[in-house]
Write a protein that binds this DNA or RNA. Sequence first.
DNA 1: CCGATTTTGTTCCCGCGTTCACAAGCTCCT
DNA 2: AGGAGCTTGTGAACGCGGGAACAAAATCGG
Lengths: 254, 254
Amino acid sequence: MTDSRTDPSKPRSGRGDASALAAAQLVDDRARRDISEATVARLPVYLRALTSLTDKGIVTASSEALAEAAGVNSAKLRKDLSYLGSYGTRGVGYDVEYLRYQIAREIGLTQDWPVVIVGVGNLGQALAGYAGFASRGFRIAALVDADPPATRTRLGDLQVHDLCDLEKLVERLGISIAVVTTPAAAAQEVADRLVACGITSILNFAPVVLSVPDGVDVRKVDLSIELQILAFHQQRKAVDARTPNGAFAPVESR
Amino acid sequence: MTDSRTDPSKPRSGRGDASALAAAQLVDDRARRDISEATVARLPVYLRALTSLTDKGIVTASSEALAEAAGVNSAKLRKDLSYLGSYGTRGVGYDVEYLRYQIAREIGLTQDWPVVIVGVGNLGQALAGYAGFASRGFRIAALVDADPPATRTRLGDLQVHDLCDLEKLVERLGISIAVVTTPAAAAQEVADRLVACGITSILNFAPVVLSVPDGVDVRKVDLSIELQILAFHQQRKAVDARTPNGAFAPVESR
DNA sequence: CCGATTTTGTTCCCGCGTTCACAAGCTCCT
DNA sequence: AGGAGCTTGTGAACGCGGGAACAAAATCGG
């Protein structure tokens, strides 16, 4: 991991004196108010764009440039950032490194997040080896599978533990985020157990709708659904191309 | 793949005589009108719920039951389905098998979709072996990687082709959907080449914002971003737990 | 045959998110 | 010092999606 966890000193700002403390409290105040879910989902995108700009040696960027890099509207970007605080300078733009740190802090990436992956099949293995996690403060703390001993008991430098030890591992390692990559049939039971031992954030790859109590966040990634959405539009394109004016629609296309 | 591609005969319907033909045209007409993106994203979920109900031997389901299985509001489900046509029967509900077929047809799953996976790393391999694709009409037609020959040249029963042959393969196999699982640095170039040889639907796993011309659909799956969103909420929970009544918040609670 | 019951299809309304547009504020140059 | 030129932060308008509520239609029992 090469990302800087260091707290970059505040760049030259409009506020003249050392009212930085008051500013920091204002920041904290702002952060406490609700940030829209849509905005939260874009913060990581901004983060990535900022990192990319830093790699190019760019020190300052306007909202226009940032929005371009992130693939969004500049007004939207400015409004999103305004939820976090006033980190830009009018007439100049945003200090890339400073803003990057502020967003990272807001998301919580300045701390270490141990993660457990439940289900070490094709996908679980791939995720365990995915470099993008570690570089952002997510550390695969444990791998768990229903029957690990017969097959492989180690994967890279990590041992694959038995599902029985799930609760023990979660507690001992202080894990609060779980990734579920089990078959669909096992996912709900695993989720129940995860919730029971205190997990409140689940990233679910199993193609089922998990039901969890309030206070537990579940995000679902469904590869098959993504392809189906693409297929829908693709089919639409094909039909439209065949009947440009809509006049030739037979009873049923295909 | 065990899914039935057979066209189930229309179940007993309120329309008495053989006005089914007119009904089909109305259906086609409806399908041509725009369906909201949010609805499209839910159709695969309904599809899965319906399949699940079929497996349980359930023949008819109310919107309430269906919504429960799909994890959505029943009014929303009914509205979504109404975009496709009138496939329910008032006072009775929906014929599970019939509705399943109609949604599958609407999405385009009644046809075969050959797919190319570009980038056969950890993730690419996992996706190539993912059973959920084949069972829904998505067939991995080709695997492509920048340097396949030295390492493995086959994966399962599929050969890993060289990136040079990308265009040739896409054309020969009639591929219109591509999955990009290359490293971030290579993704944009790959996307450009895909677009150049006629691909109009891309599922992107690389952590970059792909820029493509109009008419090309890109869906992005970003594992790291999903975790970051969870981390944000997790952090928020931790902070809230530390200041339950807002008494300890420095400047202002919420 | 008719009313009661159930459930769909649809309308209406509300709230959220996106976008435009502009005032406020910063820097730079003269 | 002061104006010109940018760029941010935000107020306002707008469009879309979600949910409640209801009318229409189908079945069932008497």
